[in-house]
Amino acid sequence: MKRTPQESLAEAIAHLDAMHRHLARGAIDDETVADAVSLRLAATIETLHRGAPDLTTGLFGDEWSVIWGMRNRIAHGYAWIDIETVRATVDEDLPSVEATLRSLLQQIRDTAREP
């Protein structure tokens, strides 16, 4: 069964919320925290890709290939992931991506409530 964009966005945001809880428990320098953050980051990207491929290219344009590349680095080369790359992604890139996702989900929910 195909998921709606709303369902995909909600799931992606749930992964991001879990990632923030992991970061609240400790610094990304901690191997367990780094593993958990990397897993949730990859899961967020995978959820968007699987559930709303048109949405991802519409939201992120050419940047989507870079985002998907991050997922591939985590999923296929986990033992060799540069934690500094993950840290930079979380600190520098993710805030705007997350804000975009949250805003779009709210817009969809607002539109669904309109008569």
Rank of each mutant, 00 (worst) to 15 (best):
R25N: 11
I28E: 08
V90I: 10
A34K: 10
T47K: 02
S96I: 11
L55K: 06
A34M: 09
Y78T: 08
I45C: 00
S65A: 13
V37E: 08
H49D: 14
G26I: 03
R71C: 01
N72V: 04
I28L: 15
A24C: 09
V97H: 06
A27E: 15
T57S: 10
L104V: 10
I67S: 00
D35I: 03
V66N: 12
T47G: 02
S96F: 11
L23T: 04
D29Q: 11
P95K: 09
T44D: 01
G61Q: 04
G77R: 04
A42G: 09
I74C: 04
A75V: 12
D82W: 02
R25F: 03
H49A: 12
I28G: 08
D30M: 06
T85I: 14
S65G: 11
L55N: 10
T100M: 06
P53C: 07
R71S: 01
P53S: 08
E84L: 15
G69W: 05
P53H: 05
D62C: 03
I74E: 01
A43R: 07
R21A: 15
S103K: 11
L55E: 11
L55A: 12
T44E: 00
G69I: 09
I45H: 00
I74Y: 00
V66T: 11
G77Y: 05
H20R: 15
G77E: 05
D30Y: 06
S38R: 13
P95V: 02
L23C: 05
L48Q: 01
S65E: 14
E98W: 01
D29T: 13
G69F: 07
I45G: 00
G58I: 13
A24F: 04
T89R: 02
H20Y: 08
P95L: 04
W64P: 14
A79N: 07
R40K: 14
L48K: 01
